[in-house]
């Protein structure tokens, strides 16, 4: 029994690390920011943490705080051009940002270790700490959802004109969402660094971006459950169906196409919607039947 659990421990760690980044991605999408830059911000946090610990010998907890700050600050700087852009342009700019981080990490060899990256990071993060981080993250996301911020994010995502007409400052809220998401990505980037022994620049590239996006799209982009369900299913799937393990990226690619076309809200959001429909249907008042379209 113990052995079985231990066998799954690496998987649990992986789940918790990816869950954090999935929430970072979820948070920006929720506020209607079309950012795909989460892994770039995670790279910023990971490198900040790695360099501070390895080169400057800072204790890991301090480095973690610095990683959150660096992720948040870079996001803040990035939000200035992003705030002026809409949809597709935001996506393009943030993908370009990933590329900038990647090439700077490769270029600045004496700081970042170049293409070889950073090795010899003391492993200070284990499953218990990741569990705590996961719980804190979920709580924060829950608190945001239930607060005025969550309501403002929802309004902006669904209709910017409505949000603005009700006094919601689009730029301020989207900047806030993006900075929070950057800080979260920074923290989880650093956790990833402290959890393994090494960092390489290519770690934070397109495949990672696609994995994170898959979790959120597949799980659901609006409910709190989305990232949990998406990350869990997509991390477990290759383990359960062994042949899929070698073709992980192929599976993610196909799933992205299928989900966005046939289940655009993702599993969790669709199920929650169905459940709500059933619950209300049971005591449906006559008026609700005169649906629109008349």
């Amino acid at each position: 029994m113990m052995n079985l659990l231990l066998g799954y421990q690496p998987l649990l760690d992986l789940f918790l690390l990816h869950l954090g980044l999935a929430y970072a991605q979820w948070l920006v999408l929720r506020a209607g920011v079309f950012s795909l830059g989460t892994v770039g911000l995670a790279a910023v946090g990971a490198y900040t943490g790695g360099i501070l610990v390895v080169t400057y010998g800072l204790p890991a907890p301090l480095a973690l705080i610095a990683s959150a700050l660096s992720g948040g600050l870079v996001a803040l700087a990035l939000s200035v051009p992003l705030a002026r852009l809409r949809g597709i342009y935001q996506a393009i700019a943030t993908v370009a940002f990933i590329q900038i981080v990647l090439s700077l990490n490769i270029y600045a060899t004496n700081v970042t270790g170049g293409a070889q990256g950073i090795t010899g990071i003391p492993k200070t993060v284990g499953t218990p700490l990741l569990l705590v981080a996961g719980a804190v993250t979920i709580y924060l996301m829950y608190a945001i959802t239930r607060s005025r911020l969550g309501r403002a994010f929802d309004a902006i995502r669904q209709n910017e004109a409505v949000a603005a007409s009700l006094g919601v400052s689009i730029v301020r809220h989207q900047t806030l969402a993006f900075v929070l998401s950057g800080a979260l990505a920074g923290v989880y980037g650093a956790l990833e660094a402290f959890h393994s022994y090494a960092l390489v620049p290519s770690q934070f590239g397109f495949p990672y971006l696609i994995a994170i996006l898959s979790y959120v799209v597949f799980g659901g982009r609006t409910s709190l459950w989305g990232p949990i369900v998406g990350t869990a299913v997509l991390i477990l799937l290759p383990e359960v169906v062994r042949p899929l393990a070698d073709a992980r990226m192929l599976v993610f690619g196909i799933l992205l196409i299928l989900t966005i076309n046939f289940l655009p809200k993702g599993i969790a959001d669709t199920l929650i919607e169905r459940a709500r429909g059933r619950r209300l249907g049971a005591r449906r008042p006559a008026e609700a039947d005169t649906a629109k379209g008349s």
């Binding site: 196909i254 992205l256 196409i257 966005i260």
Partner: peptide, 11 residues
Amino acid sequence: AIISSMGAGMV
């Protein structure tokens, strides 16, 4: 479309 074509690119 961004998600879908990203998936296609991966495939």
